[in-house]
Amino acid sequence: ADMMFGLHGWTSVKIGHVATKVGAMMASTDEFYVEMVGQGGHAAAPEMSRDPIVAIASFITTVQQICSRNTDPFDNIVVTVGQVHGGTANNIIPMSAMVHGTIRTMNPDTRIMAKKRLEQVAHGVAAAHDVEAKVTINEGYPVVINHEDAVARFLDVARGVLGDEKVSDKAEPTMGGEDFAYYSSECPCCFYQLGLIPDGVDSIPSVHTPHFDFNDDALAIGVKVMTALALS
């Protein structure tokens, strides 16, 4: 392919506007599963058990040191635990407890470091609590990289369709991920933000929240820009 272009509806950009930038646009996405395996027992006799709940709770807080103590403050990284599972009753210490989370980075070296440190933290916390850690890290999407030539073409075409004042080359990068990233290694690419905020409104709920509602008025705008890019 000559060039590839992609878009995503954006809840911080006004309807009728689009935005992009050269360089890293969206983060890499890796997911992790950490299970702490101990020895179950009665909640009234914790000394006869090896409590995985306490261990997994310690891991959840300690793993944040990857961001605060292992990463340059001017680098971009997010480590989020999105799921916690463990236990079946209030008076039982379970055999195991598990978390499922995501690592987001913009820098390939930081990505490698974060995955290595997460595994070290999990096993270190497990040793401190006399339990066993089982760690699985699945590599996800790479960083979305916008190439200079593709961005230049997008800006020229989009300004012709929408007008100069509605096209920005100073988009804020995000730690969200996108499988469009795979195209970046194949040809020059540009991924851009399609505005969703309706006229007369300052803000709308973000994606991945219960109150998000896609603004259908943005569809025609996206089609116009994409058609013009194809014809260019």
Rank of each mutant, 00 (worst) to 15 (best):
I137Y: 05
V157M: 12
P108C: 02
V135W: 04
S96R: 09
V144E: 06
I137E: 06
A127S: 14
G38M: 00
V54Q: 04
H85F: 14
F74K: 15
M48D: 13
N146C: 11
V84E: 13
H129P: 04
D75S: 13
L118E: 00
S68D: 11
D51R: 04
N107I: 03
Q39D: 03
D109M: 08
N91Y: 10
Q64K: 15
D130V: 07
T29I: 00
Q64N: 14
H42T: 07
T110S: 02
I93Q: 07
A126H: 01
K116M: 10
Q120R: 08
T136A: 10
T110E: 00
N91F: 08
H123L: 02
A44M: 07
V135I: 11
K115R: 11
K134W: 06
A128K: 06
T80Y: 11
E119F: 04
E31P: 01
F32K: 01
E119M: 02
S49W: 08
A158Q: 10
R69H: 12
R153Q: 15
E132I: 05
S96Q: 10
E132P: 03
I60F: 13
S49M: 08
M106I: 00
M106V: 01
V54N: 07
E35H: 00
T110H: 03
G87I: 11
E148R: 13
P142K: 12
A97M: 04
T71V: 12
A55H: 06
Q65D: 15
D109I: 01
F59I: 07
S28C: 05
I77C: 13
I77T: 12
I53S: 07
V125E: 08
M106C: 04
M95L: 13
F59M: 14
T102D: 08
R69M: 10
I137R: 03
E148F: 08
E47L: 06
C67F: 09
P52I: 05
V135R: 02
G86E: 13
F32P: 00
N146F: 12
G41F: 04
D149E: 15
T80K: 09
D149V: 15
I53P: 10
V143Y: 04
D75E: 15
G38L: 00
A114F: 00
N146Q: 12
K116Q: 09
V151I: 15
V37H: 01
C67K: 14
N90I: 10
K134A: 05
D75F: 06
G101P: 09
A133F: 02
H100E: 08
E139A: 13
A126T: 03
F32T: 01
D72R: 14
A55P: 05
A89W: 13
A89I: 09
I56N: 08
H129C: 02
N70K: 15
D30E: 03
T61N: 12
N138K: 15
A44K: 06
S28I: 02
A150K: 06
E119S: 03
K116G: 06
A128W: 05
H123N: 08
D130F: 09
V144M: 11
I60G: 12
A127E: 06
A152R: 12
V151G: 10
D30Y: 00
E47K: 06
G86D: 09
G41E: 05
